[in-house]
Design a protein around this nucleic acid. Structure first.
Lengths: 251, 251
DNA sequence: ACAAAAGTGTTGCGCTTACACCCATGC
DNA sequence: GCATGGGTGTAAGCGCAACACTTTTGT
């Protein structure tokens, strides 16, 4: 049996690494908002991050990729390990096993588990949120409309966002979050959503253009009810170079 | 039984988290060089990073602190989790169990293990390197005189150094690596050792002083065979503030 | 006296920030 | 035509990097 699924199942066979789980914070960008993909446990109203176990034969990165592909349908996504959560009281076994009794038999829970946290940046429009056999929905939620999360997943989410904010200061971000063609205001709103603050549009444009990671197309976006903004697209080669070099890139 | 010790013992009881280990990259600074604490396995000539298992009742941070205190005699050290290594082929069970057959019975090895990496910054002069029951020595080694290491420990060490170099750009470092009183050239050589490049002494001094984390004492260091440098000491309060705020601090 | 390391200031450039008006579009 | 958002340039100040000579000390 292979359990593709979630948190903390006390599977005592040798197929998976015991007491180890992996949780994914999947970020998307839509309607000017940073969103996170959450799952709701079958027959309950309890939400958590999508997660899973690690098979004996796969690496942590492979496990994270597998989980992401299952939930989003995407391959080749930007994925990064950011922290491993190992407090001995990350969750209360009694309380959790009670809440999820209809999904997971109580005796299957470990007393404690360690969870490796990954975050992913994905293109919202290309994602097909897919619940699995333990969840009956899988949905995007804005950062300001988050439900309470099971386990320590609220903390994991918050930590992921902290890491993302740090990384964005050194590396270009966007190739993974934005569609193929996008406007400068869209890109700027993405940065604003991640950083949680306003950015000056003139300075933003100057900096992005100077870095060389985007190219201005001659095409404009029509039907925006106001002046038509230009489309831009990423220069993948240059983007990769800047990503490699980490040649910083504050906004 | 509690095994305080190292990598990858297939202890099948419930005292420790199975298939999970924790490895520490302990950095010290001495004689102008960045050094790392290594252990040599008993009766062999094989070296590795000091590591250990995680007890069921302790958090990852607690486990790392325990291991560090055992090896160095220090309490209250600067310790940071940086990455979790989870490739399924991090080590070759056959080859490792062969090499360490005199220390660990072959059947005790897991097929694979996940290792959480921590690095620590410690004051070289205060450390008493202490081998444990599995190692017959525990020694400092300079970064350019490293032996080959077991498992994937060379990669872990390299990764730790990468993380340290990134962190040093945002946070003050030194309170943990330098003695209570130190000279500006000593501090500068520490930065040079970590960053692996030369620094301009005038610009360095300006930047450090401006940050306010050190205070110049009126005392000079005597007997240096040349002009006597001033002693400095850390302003712990200010240091803590800068550390918190992450108010960056490039060198 | 000599060799070696420590101490110290200035300048120019580039980067960052602050700031406001005109333009295009849909309604 | 009006409201809304998009597009764009300049100026000032700050931070960073480059750079060399004098001082002190032990031998």
């Amino acid at each position: 049996m292979i359990v593709s699924n979630p948190e903390l199942l006390a599977i005592q066979n040798s197929e998976v690494v015991p007491q180890l789980t992996l949780d994914c914070v999947i970020f998307g960008f839509h309607a000017g908002q940073l969103k996170v993909l959450l799952v709701k446990w079958k027959g309950t109203s309890f939400w958590s991050l999508p997660g899973g176990v690690v098979r004996q034969s796969e690496s942590l990165n492979d496990a994270a990729t597998r989980i992401l592909t299952q939930r989003t349908g995407l391959v080749d996504i930007f994925l990064r390990q950011f922290y491993t959560f190992g407090d001995s009281n990350r969750y209360d076994k009694e309380s959790v096993s009670e809440k999820l009794a209809s999904v997971v038999p109580k005796h299957m829970w470990y007393d404690r588990a360690i969870s490796v946290g990954y975050y992913a940046l994905v293109n919202y429009a290309q994602v097909f949120p897919t619940p699995d056999e333990m969840s009956d929905s899988c949905e995007w939620r804005g950062l300001d409309e988050l439900p309470e999360l099971l386990f320590d997943h609220s903390e994991i989410l918050k930590t992921a966002l902290d890491y993302l904010r740090k990384e964005i200061a050194h590396q270009p971000v966007g190739l993974n979050l934005l569609p193929l063609k996008f406007t400068m205001p869209e890109m700027m709103r993405m940065y604003e959503a991640i950083l949680g603050r306003k950015i000056d549009p003139r300075n933003f444009q100057k900096k992005i253009l100077k870095s060389g990671i985007v190219i201005k197309s001659k095409e404009v976006k029509k039907g925006t009810a106001h002046r038509s903004p230009f489309f831009y697209y990423f220069d993948n080669k240059k983007y990769g170079e800047v990503l490699q070099s980490g040649s910083l890139f504050f906004i």
